[in-house]
Design a protein around this nucleic acid. Structure first.
Lengths: 140, 140
DNA sequence: TTCTCTGCAAACGCTTTGCACGGAT
DNA sequence: ATCCGTGCAAAGCGTTTGCAGAGAA
């Protein structure tokens, strides 16, 4: 546990972000999560550790993290934003039945971008919706 | 112009949607737009033709169109939803400078979906952000 | 001291809901 | 007469903004 805190502090310093308690905890939580938490998820979990925490602070931190490329934002459909400590290019699959979100690799090179010659691409957002393997088996 | 109305009516009937004036106009407007209008765009344009139109009706119609696969919804970032009469799989590029949205073709077969074996995919959402060709030239 | 961070309260913007009127069948 | 579509008003919900007090440098 201390190791993960230390890793978070180190990453924050590398990105020129002062490691406040709130920032460390948010980052640590994201790094240990596999399920792309929402602001609510983050807030509800951390308010136990930091009783004075406010949602505004979580929003402030996540905005800062996005700007500094510490985390990425995942938006699937109408619903609220989700956050991901993995900033590499990858896709997300949301199961319409169980609601789980799965990561998958994307070979960006093979994504033929016909019509985008000489465009400068800063962000890739790729997500799919459907029924995951497990839910499909249940249906049969 | 009449031809495009007739085409809209025909499509609605094929999809088992009763062709009310509002529905015809919304569909027709989407089919003639190349820029993925928002609810506001649609409303502001059509309220000239249909002075009693309300935004709720536009929302109702677009929801129905989505369910019946007449149109698709494009969400880029935090902002409001955009609507597209093209329901085939394709990607969107949003220029962070001029705000324009460009379509591009996606070769879904070549998108390697490592980790999604036996998943049933219903929807593809692919969008990129960056600087478009024209804005890039201006910067130089 | 000065600058930054936090967090309350209020505002905001897009979207949804409840409901009643009116038109179509 | 019944059903469906429309549209007003209000609520809902995630997010942002203004600001003041607390804390770090």
């Amino acid at each position: 546990m201390n190791a993960s805190i230390r890793a978070s502090v180190k990453l924050l310093k590398e990105k020129d972000i002062r490691p406040s308690v709130q920032r460390i905890r948010v980052l640590e939580y994201l790094q240990n999560s596999k399920n792309h938490p929402t602001v609510d998820n983050i807030y509800n979990y951390l308010v136990n550790e930091i009783p004075t925490l406010s949602k505004t602070t979580v929003y402030n931190i996540l905005k800062l993290f996005s700007e500094k490329n510490v985390t990425s934002t995942v938006r699937i459909g109408t619903n609220e934003a989700r956050y991901d400590a993995d900033t590499s290019v990858h896709g997300h699959f949301k199961c319409e039945k169980c609601g789980n979100i799965y990561d998958f690799n994307v070979n960006i090179e093979e994504l033929k971008l016909t019509g985008l010659d000489k465009f400068k691409i800063n962000e890739h957002h790729i997500y799919l919706k459907g029924i995951c393997k497990n839910c499909k088996i249940e249906e049969e």
